[in-house]
């Protein structure tokens, strides 16, 4: 499958999203490129529309105008087969895990694999255990149900499910929120390891300054329905934009840097 020239795995152009029949315009002519193999951190004030952008790219929120290309496929004009082909190549970690509550951890991870691949039960079980191992969980967890897991474990299992088909692109919606700092640090390491080993591209919505400093290659900032800045952490720190300034030079940011 051909990729666009500058190797952007996601290309968003002039995206506009409105809610409530035009009462609130959440995204207003937004442009964004996510390059192959990078970890892009996406930040912005609460309620600025970060999750809306993610949900619009993956097709859960309808858009008013603009184009979205993922893997070079225009999702606006693609037919359902092309869409499915794209969906098979990405994995999504929802903010609250969104595990299927009536399926065990094992069944949750195997669900997408069963749907797309015709492999033996043995391989399914082995891959499940391997994925659990990759996200730092013990094989014993496999037969538990989501309601029997802690918040951090739910995030890990959800990541394992997002990675079940070895996608090229993963969307993470606040992956470290609700985790203790050590757990959050482990999670960042995990994402970086997976990016190195599997060549993943990661689109990460986050508020975690530690993640931004350690894990992200580039950072995009959302404000007023647009991307107001894109660049490395140093670019962000050098920016004079008032929100960025208080975000990266505030009390919490200083604590992270020092």
């Amino acid at each position: 499958m051909a990729n666009p020239p500058n190797d952007a795995i996601i290309r968003v152009r002039d995206l506009t999203v409105e809610f409530g029949g035009g009462k609130t315009r959440v995204l207003n002519g937004l442009n964004l490129d996510v390059r192959r193999g990078e970890i892009l951190g996406f930040v912005g004030p609460s309620g600025a529309g970060k999750s809306v952008l993610m949900r619009t790219i993956i097709g859960l929120v309808p858009r008013l105008a603009g184009d979205i290309e993922v893997f070079g496929v225009d999702l606006g004009t693609a037919d359902s087969d092309a869409r499915r082909a794209v969906e098979r190549r990405w994995g999504i970690l929802f903010q609250h895990g969104a595990l299927f509550s009536s399926l065990s951890v094992r069944q949750n991870i195997q669900f997408p694999v069963r749907e797309y691949l015709n492999v033996s039960e043995r391989l399914l079980d082995e891959i499940t255990i391997a994925k659990l191992g990759m996200v730092g969980l013990k094989p014993e967890v496999a037969d538990r149900y989501p309601s029997e897991l802690s918040g951090g474990m739910i995030k890990r299992v959800a990541l394992a499910r997002a990675l079940a088909l070895d996608p090229e692109l993963v969307f993470l919606d606040e992956p470290t929120s609700g985790l203790d700092p050590i757990g959050a640090g482990d999670f960042d390491d995990l994402v970086m390891t997976l990016q190195r080993t599997l060549g993943l591209t990661v689109f990460m919505v986050t508020h975690d300054l530690d993640s931004l400093y350690t894990a992200c290659d580039r950072i995009a900032v959302l404000g007023d329905g647009k991307v107001i800045a894109v660049g490395s952490i140093d670019d962000m720190r050098a920016s004079q934009h008032p929100w960025l300034n208080s975000y990266f030079h505030g009390k919490r940011a200083r604590a992270v840097v020092s």
Partner: peptide, 15 residues
């Protein structure tokens, strides 16, 4: 790194 990662997988307990 990837092969090392899966090498740590223990023998699967039967479901």
């Amino acid at each position: 790194t990837l092969v090392d990662e899966v090498r740590r997988v223990k023998e699967t307990p039967p479901p």
